[in-house]
Simulated scan of single mutants.
Amino acid sequence: MDFGLSGKTALVLGASRGLGAACARELALEGVTVYAAARNTAAIAGWAADLPAGQVVPVALDLSDPAQVAAVSAEMAQTGIDILIANCGGPKAGPATGQSTAAWQAAWEAMALPVMAIADALLPGMCARGFGRIITIGSSGIVSPIPGLALSNGIRGALAGWSKTLAGEVAAQGVTVNMVLPGRIGTDRVAELDAGRAAKTGQSVEEVAAASRATIPAGRYGDPAEFAAVAAFLASARASYVTGSMIRVDGGMLRNL
């Protein structure tokens, strides 16, 4: 299938590793010029080394720094971005009980506000060109809150409400707004969560991972490339009538309708 993406431009947040890197690479393989943003730009250069020169442009960005977010937003608005992959790292694990106001505020400022600000800066250009894709990487915790990940559940849930509202506002201008919800994808973040659970329970990491795999009908963790393929489709011209949706990529893990 021709995704019709050759010649388009994308900004991918959190592109140094994991799902962000996988999405950035998939778009680059489709002929998109990708501005890959992260604090660790050396890691971006590493995974992009086999791609044509200039296909992937590393952009230094710390999403927790408002000044950097504002500067990159302005630069990318001038560049003319067609596709935004809004990806941010998850906050520390922990219960809802006893979370400090400072912890909630830090998670909000690092995960939600930067995504909203960057999208707002890019939207006028997308609307003027009559083509735009805003794809936010969420979590299965939006649909079925994950015990022990209260900060992530709360902030990503807020992003889901923002995404759905925005989708209705810009659909007539040719801009689609969707979320992709990963289940247990084999990334460093999931490995870190498994290791944390192993430390708390006294199990081995493999025992924790095996128990997790047993809850997934597909019987395995997903490959980041499988997730990225769904994001690339949503970015494509073929997905022009898909907006305001949350697409699960979880091997059937969630039983919710």
Rank of each mutant, 00 (worst) to 15 (best):
V177G: 06
A172G: 00
M246N: 08
M116K: 12
S163I: 04
K8M: 08
A209I: 13
R17Q: 13
A45Y: 00
A36T: 03
A112Q: 12
T187Q: 05
V56I: 11
L159A: 08
L27R: 12
P145N: 03
A218C: 10
G98V: 04
A107L: 06
R220N: 14
V242T: 11
D62W: 09
G80W: 07
L149A: 13
L11T: 02
A117M: 12
L84H: 09
P147F: 04
G154D: 02
E207N: 10
T176R: 12
T187N: 04
R133A: 13
T165M: 10
V205D: 05
M111E: 14
W47F: 08
L19Q: 02
D65K: 05
L193F: 06
V34E: 01
I81E: 12
I83D: 07
A229E: 13
I247T: 13
G154H: 06
A96M: 14
A211H: 05
R238N: 14
R39A: 02
A209R: 15
S212Y: 03
S140M: 12
G222V: 11
A38C: 03
L11Q: 06
A209W: 03
A96G: 13
A77P: 11
L84Q: 08
Q105K: 13
D188V: 03
F233A: 07
A86I: 01
P95M: 10
G14V: 01
